[in-house]
């Protein structure tokens, strides 16, 4: 099974990539690890005339501290996000999400930037990155801008990326001391994609009360769903199991999932409450 014919170019600098993107416009697609794009091209779901391979751009891999954020290069493969000491220590929920994507070989090749830009509604990174209030650095010939995860994911496979922009970096605010992060996932047993998943960021006061919490749920719609009713129910409360369970029971409030061949809408709503509870409990106990 081959993709349809296309032209190919592998720029050696971001500047070259931007010029090529400008020249080819809508006919071009950016290629990172190719683990979403190449399957889509084989199925003719995507049929670009030209692939601009970002794989040889320097400086877009790895994670580093940048001010009060963790900056992750867009070309960092999932396996490296999962095994990064920095990510595991400061944002264990993000490392956990990365370790649950696909399988070993997919994690050795797929990139965080590619996953985010593809915006599959059943992907893992969009969910945890929404919970962690990440932003994405988008570079165009006229400069760069940072877009928050919630503004970035617009619809199924649709993002705020403009046709002349390249996603270069993912920035995740480093949680304050006493904060915990976690990700819990119900994978489809065959594909490994998300049926329902939950990402949580819990910030505790020294007293043990919940200072603030962000919970994002995957699988309930076209983009990650912020469980605001759950968040409101936890704010200022003691992070005790029964209080977390009662708050998590509201995780699908306001969501409108579709039935699909694998899971019905009611089941997804119920699983959202289960996985929200798992994620919040883990984040609340994994103080960092």
């Amino acid at each position: 099974m081959f993709p349809a014919n296309f032209g190919y170019v592998a720029p050696r600098s971001l500047q070259e990539a931007l010029e090529l993107l400008d020249k080819h416009g809508e006919d071009a697609k950016l290629l990172a690890g190719g683990h979403s794009l190449i399957p889509a091209m084989k199925l003719r779901l995507a049929r670009p005339g030209c692939l601009i391979d970002l794989g040889r751009l320097p400086g877009l891999g790895g994670a580093r501290i940048e001010g009060d954020s963790l900056a992750i290069g867009a070309l960092t493969v999932h396996a490296d996000v999962a095994s990064s000491e920095l990510v595991r220590r400061r944002l264990p929920g993000l490392a956990e999400a990365a370790s649950l994507i696909g399988d070993v070989q997919v994690r050795n090749r797929g990139t965080i930037g590619g996953s985010v830009a593809h915006a599959d509604p059943a992907a893992d990174f969009p969910v945890i990155l929404t919970a962690l209030n990440a932003s994405f650095v988008l570079v165009s010939p006229s400069g760069s801008r940072a877009v928050s995860a919630e503004d970035f994911f617009v619809d199924f496979y649709t993002t705020a990326l403009a046709a002349n922009e390249v996603l270069t970096e993912i920035r995740v605010p480093l949680p304050s001391p006493g904060a915990g992060t976690s990700y819990a996932k119900l994978p489809h047993p065959a594909s490994g994609y998300v049926v329902v998943s939950a990402g949580a960021l819990v910030i505790r006061q020294p007293s043990g009360l919940c200072a603030s919490v962000r919970v994002a749920i995957g699988g309930l719609g076209s983009v990650p769903f912020r469980a605001r009713a759950t968040e409101a129910a936890l704010q200022g409360q003691q992070l005790a199991p029964e209080i977390i369970a009662a708050a998590a029971a509201k995780a699908a409030e306001g969501a409108d999932p579709d039935d699909d061949v694998y899971a019905g809408a009611d089941y997804k709503r119920h699983m959202a409450t289960v996985y929200a509870r798992k994620a919040i409990e883990a984040a609340a106990s994994n103080k960092r």
Partner: peptide, 25 residues
């Protein structure tokens, strides 16, 4: 379709599915 792993090889030392990589890459 990058599911079964029969095409697994080592590319620069890492295991990958060679059905989902272009030769030019």
């Amino acid at each position: 379709t990058s599911q079964c792993g029969a095409c697994t090889i080592l590319l620069d030392g890492r295991s990958v599915k060679s059905c989902t990589i272009l030769a030019v890459q």
